[in-house]
């Protein structure tokens, strides 16, 4: 019996370690799979490269409302309206919450800054 309790405690300890080491990334909840399907186009964690809408860190309610509008408007107006139709309302809510909680990685920030600098330089050249 004592052995069993020790083993149980041991396992709980390990599970805690694992959860802790995961904590930096995100919680392993169901929304992770659904939300990460947005990242192919909108960038890892919702921070894109180039000309695509940034969705990471946005207000969860606005994200959700926008997705619901896309899902239910009578006539589809583009790719996103189709994607929104692929998920239940609960999934869309979970996706919005997950994406809203994501922050930009250092690399993504650096790349974005470089890109913005390049654009500014190009603009200056064009006007100069």
């Amino acid at each position: 019996m004592q052995k069993k309790i020790y083993r149980l405690l041991y396992q709980i300890g390990l599970a805690l370690i694992f959860t802790f080491s995961n904590a930096q990334g995100s919680n392993a909840d169901d929304s992770r799979i659904w939300a990460s399907q947005c990242f192919q186009c909108h960038g890892t964690n919702g921070y894109p490269v180039g000309d695509m809408d940034e969705i990471g860190g946005k207000d969860p309610n606005s994200l959700y409302e926008e997705l619901i509008e896309m899902k239910y408007r009578g006539k589809t107006e583009g790719i996103m309206d189709l994607h929104a139709r692929g998920y239940s309302d609960e999934q869309l809510r979970a996706i919005a919450e997950y994406i809203s909680a994501q922050s930009e990685s250092k690399q993504q920030e650096e790349e974005r800054n470089q890109e913005e600098e390049r654009e500014e330089e190009e603009e200056e050249e064009n006007h100069g």
């Binding site: 659904w34 947005c38 192919q40 998920y87």
Partner: peptide
């Protein structure tokens, strides 16, 4: 992403997401 999530849960002693989705564009 579905596979990575399932493998990480497996190592963490959890069940995989029972409602996975995939998107194509």
């Amino acid at each position: 992403k579905v596979c990575a999530d399932a493998i990480l849960r497996y190592f963490g002693g959890e069940q995989p997401n029972q409602q996975p989705s995939t998107a194509s564009a």
